[in-house]
Write a protein that binds this DNA or RNA. Structure first.
Length: 547
RNA sequence: GGCCAGUUGGUGAAGUGGCUUAACACACUGCCCUUUCACGGCAGCAUUCGCGGAUUCGAAUUCCGCACUGGUCACCA
């Protein structure tokens, strides 16, 4: 009995060789880097995935290379329906569609299939070869037995794992292994390691720099009972065949790097370059400590969070850019008119430690992004969002699109536009008082600030309506306010007022506040004159009289 | 517990032996501008770079030890 016999027994249908596959997937002829993002279809798009996608995309674009998506669905237990759709929807939404991918039955690119479950035979060609040369073997150990061994290792403070003296099935003779497979015993395939844990090797990571890691000596699983490969093996086969030159993945993979290195070396394949990205951290509300952002505890870990709340995609991208490359913000302020697409990513400018994802920062960036949009652009985006997430806003825009645009346009067309909207979700709360029906139905807490006396408020509003009402143009309107201020014994000039406040009942600021609160019920609003102009005389008078 | 990595203000961070009295941005506070709020402008916010020791004329930067934080140790990726 030979290894060849064993390989044929385990994988009888595999007739292709690695050379055949090499001919089917020839070496790429691209000048730039080949990157990939490899999500698992678990029905969840993690912010860390978006972060990596951005990096992959930039590297490929900057170098004139290729960026592709590979769906890693070798874990049938975790697979979720429509998850692949969610991945591509998110990528499209952020305008990050790759050069090569596979969506439904459509394959774009020559290195597919880009879904791992459809590549089973390809992996098995490599696995069969390994069995033939005696570098892989079937393992019949049960889960229970493995657990027992691990417990014993822990008890005796040994390293856990299937290595050295613990790799029992490795010692089985070919004849015995052959018989047991033939008899229908359950098994998986393990890699036969030749490494020595006490020997270290150097490894250069593009972000982490030089690492010193122990060689792998574990006979880890490469093919599961369902015939699909484990991540480690799929990584080898796919990234070799698909010609990946830079692998971008989370730093949790560093500890399995020795396995990958041994695998690549065994086949004599060149190792890709690696970027191990730091984890995205968050401050825990309860303990006050930093921790990895969590799928279960933190809604903002999911990309759906940003969509639901109506953050512009550009704002999310830019906030991620600030933690991807520490010099991004500087670059952005120096090149305000350029798109983030023009930025050249540099792995050396990436922090090696975990970066904190700060929602406050996102809000600030988002306000700036929205303030730079034209009214048409904002209206369109807000409307798209409202169609799925906010009936009220959709209704307001449907009712009168121009009126809506006029409202959001207040203090927009100036060198430093107003920044009061961070997300589409905020819009209704910002403008409801511009609509009579909402103004009638909402609970209003008139926030009068300085002048609180009912009689005085009535006096101010009455005098204003009688004598000084004028919204023809901004100057005459303001002059009216000034005259009103003087007549009632307040100071119309802020400088004079500040020199000696005791000489006056108050200032033009106080009068303006009364006019603003009387009209909007809020002490904070965009430019008062613009609001008045949009509302028109009748509606203003009606509201003032009702107070 | 073994192995690997990280540790600079409230936060993201710049920093690779003297240009650092530690940049810049967010947050916060104050002032100014402004008819109010916001926007904007200015200023304040780490006497100090996790702790201890060593090297050096000189250390956030180099070396050693310790502490803490994170990652990993699956037929999950």
């Amino acid at each position: 009995m030979t290894n060849k016999n064993l390989a044929d027994l385990i994988l009888p249908n595999i007739t292709k060789t690695i050379d055949d596959l090499r001919r089917e997937y020839p070496k790429r002829e691209v000048e730039g880097e080949v990157t990939r993002v490899a999500p698992s279809p678990t029905g969840y798009f993690h912010i860390g995935g978006m972060y990596q996608t951005l990096i992959d995309n930039m590297i490929a674009r900057n170098s004139n290379g290729v960026f592709y998506v590979r769906i890693e669905d070798t874990d049938s237990k975790r697979k979720v329906d429509d998850a692949v759709e969610l991945i591509y929807d998110t990528l499209k939404n952020y305008d990050l569609m790759p050069n090569e991918y596979q969506e439904k039955d459509r394959i774009v690119g020559n290195y597919g299939p880009y879904v791992q479950s459809e590549r089973k035979e390809i992996y098995q060609v490599f696995i069969k070869y390994l069995i033939e040369i005696g570098r892989a073997y079937p393992c019949f150990c049960s889960k229970d037995k493995l657990d027992e061994v691990r417990e014993r290792q822990e008890r005796y403070k040994q390293r856990t794992g299937y290595y050295g003296p613990y790799s029992t099935c490795r010692k089985l003779s070919i004849d015995e292994a052959y018989e047991r497979v033939k008899n229908g015993e359950n098994y998986i395939i393990r890699f036969k390691s030749k490494g020595n844990f006490d020997e270290k090797f150097r490894f250069d990571d593009l972000v982490k720099g030089r690492l010193l890691l122990p060689e792998n000596d574990e006979d880890f699983v490469i093919m599961k009972a369902d015939g699909l490969p484990t991540y480690h093996f799929a990584h080898l086969v796919d990234d070799y065949l698909m010609g990946t030159t830079i692998v971008v993945r989370g730093e949790e993979w560093i500890s399995s790097l020795p396995k990958h290195v041994e695998l690549f070396n065994t086949f004599g394949f060149d190792l890709p370059k690696y970027i191990h990205t730091p984890n995205i951290m968050k401050k825990d509300e309860e303990t006050g400590k930093l921790r990895k952002i969590s799928k279960r505890k933190d809604p903002e870990a999911s990309m759906s969070y940003y969509k639901e709340h109506g953050y512009p995609t550009l704002a999310v991208i830019e906030s991620l850019m600030t933690i991807i490359n520490t010099n991004y913000e500087q670059w952005h302020t120096n090149n305000p008119e350029k798109s983030y697409l023009d930025f050249v990513y540099d792995p050396k400018k990436m922090s090696a430690s975990g970066g904190l994802y700060d929602l406050d920062k996102l809000i600030n960036i988002s306000k700036t992004v929205i303030s730079k949009m034209t009214k048409e652009e904002l209206c369109e985006k807000a409307y798209d969002w409202a169609c799925s997430y906010n009936e009220d806003l959709k209704e307001l825009i449907d009712r009168d699109r121009d009126y809506f645009m006029n409202i959001i346009n207040i203090e927009r067309c100036q060198k430093k536009p107003r920044k009061d909207i961070a997300k589409y979700e905020d819009i209704v709360d910002n403008i409801w008082f511009m609509y009579d029906d909402l103004y009638e139905s909402r609970d209003k807490d008139f926030d009068w600030q300085v002048i609180n006396d009912k009689e005085e408020i009535k006096n101010i509003l009455d005098t204003y309506m009688d004598k000084y009402f004028n919204i023809d143009d901004k100057d005459s309107w303001f002059n009216g306010v000034r005259d009103l201020t003087n007549e009632l014994g307040y100071c119309a000039n802020m400088k004079e007022y500040k020199e000696d406040p005791s000489k006056y009942k108050g200032s033009v600021a106080d009068i303006s506040t009364v006019l603003r609160v009387g009209l909007t019920s809020k002490s904070m609003s965009p430019d008062l004159y613009e609001i008045m102009r949009l509302l028109g005389k009748d509606r203003i008078l009606k509201r003032y009289k009702n107070i």
